[in-house]
Design a protein around this nucleic acid. Structure first.
Lengths: 253, 253
DNA sequence: CGGGACCTTGATTCATATCAAAGGGTGTGG
DNA sequence: CCACACCCTTTGATATGAATCAAGGTCCCG
């Protein structure tokens, strides 16, 4: 788990994909990670109906958001990787409508409302970067709908593998077309709206076609071009409008 | 189309579901609707890749957000009904990642960045209500993923019918368990991740079971209890935390 | 009254689910 | 350090929900 002591490196790295941060910003982010907590894999970090006690900042490890139907069917709605905030704006609500569970062992910081508000107030660059990342998350969710609704099992699976690669690359956790992601086939199935058996067969297809290699918990993309073509994946190029920068500061709420 | 001259009644009604507005707030909203434009059904209001020229406010009629895959497959990602803003925060981006098309004839106001920012600055109640409604939209999108991923065709279809009923009711466009919504079966199919033929058969099932009645463009929910049970629908009860009110004003960006 | 878009129906195919059982890894306790 | 246990993956057989194809019917609009 603790390969790195500098546990906020991922947020910093992630937010710097939007625009450079000053060292004061980085210190503020480091401050958010100071008070962190370990949770073992498979534990729920938030439960549907909870009053969100604070925004979760992922420091190490992976988590996912999901919803259950009454009869046990489950749908995973997105993944959290190091550097991600779980819905920075959701603490406005009294109740959340989904659950979050740890996929692996995780290290998370639970940032209380007031602390986050203070950081956002004092560090507009962080606020903007966070805003940008929230918009990216929404765009990803829309693409998720497209995948499940209109992509075949093969395309869908390929698409998820591409998405994870790009997100992990953005925080330095993917290199050379490969990354570690400790997911089971059942969890993939619940993400993709498929059965576990079919995910198994779909992964075999991807392997047989030499598009990916996959051993236990790690993925290697052998042919990035063909894989992303198959997935109908397009590297998400949402940028913040330049014009936006100065005046969005007034879009308060 | 123009049954009503007061074309901003729906936004006002919608936002008042969150908290009462003062008359100054209502005047501001009326101001946003002053400069509106008619578009015929089936026209695109925004296209993927556009630089969003302004936030769209739906005044009359219906629209939907969608994405296409290269080969013509299409997924509808959500509907806009009178009173809805299409992504109030999206104008922060330089490009949008989806398209919006008119489902029926529509009357929309295109609110320029600056005008919206000014209203939000001067009317914190509006800003808060809009924030709340954006969070509701996100929750709806998550539920949409659950539907497509894990509900059967029958449940999914029933769920969409319930969702539309509740949203239209919130702006006074549904009464007595019935509403007008001029959607084709192909459009339903593209929303639900199904084929048009299968939607046809699914609707017949719902009709045969006396759960709904449906003539051309109008839906009647004959048995609300059984329909929402079948749909695994739960009336979305996201409320803003009271504690939140005073200080979210500092969550600027 | 004609035409086009939409809905409906039936027949068939196909993708994916389900069921069931065997095989492989991996971590834990003895 | 081994062995067992458990979880995960793999495989095969079968079932089924939904897609596709194709044709006819209906409604509405001009």
């Amino acid at each position: 788990m603790h390969r790195d002591l500098n546990v906020t490196q991922y947020v910093i790295r992630k937010l710097e994909n939007y625009a450079p941060l000053e060292s004061s910003d980085k210190e503020a982010l480091e401050g958010l990670g100071r008070d962190c907590k370990f949770h073992p894999a498979h534990v729920d970090l938030m439960l549907e109906g909870d009053d969100p006690r604070g925004v979760i900042l992922m420091l190490e490890g992976f988590a996912y958001r999901y919803k259950n139907l009454d009869d046990g069917r489950r749908q995973i709605i997105g993944y959290f990787v190091p550097g991600d905030f779980c819905d920075p704006h959701v603490f406005v609500l009294r109740k959340i409508d989904y659950s979050v569970a740890a996929l692996s062992n995780v290290l998370v910081a639970r940032v209380p409302r007031g602390k986050l508000v203070k950081v956002l107030d004092e560090h507009p660059r962080i606020a903007r970067a966070l805003w940008w990342s929230a918009l990216m998350d929404e765009a990803n969710l829309r693409e998720w709908v497209v995948s499940i609704g209109r992509r075949t099992a093969l395309e869908r699976t390929a698409h998820l593998i591409c998405e994870l690669y790009h997100r992990l690359q953005a925080v330095g956790l993917a290199r050379d077309n490969s990354y570690e992601f400790p997911i089971t086939q059942q969890e993939l199935a619940d993400s993709l709206g498929l059965s576990a058996v079919h995910v198994n067969r779909t992964l075999q297809l991807l392997r047989n076609q030499k598009l990916i290699a996959q051993r236990s918990r790690s993925f290697v993309i052998l042919d990035p071009v063909r894989l992303s073509e198959l997935a109908l994946f397009q590297k998400n190029s949402l940028h913040i409008s330049d014009e936006g920068h100065p005046s969005i500061s007034s879009m308060r709420i």
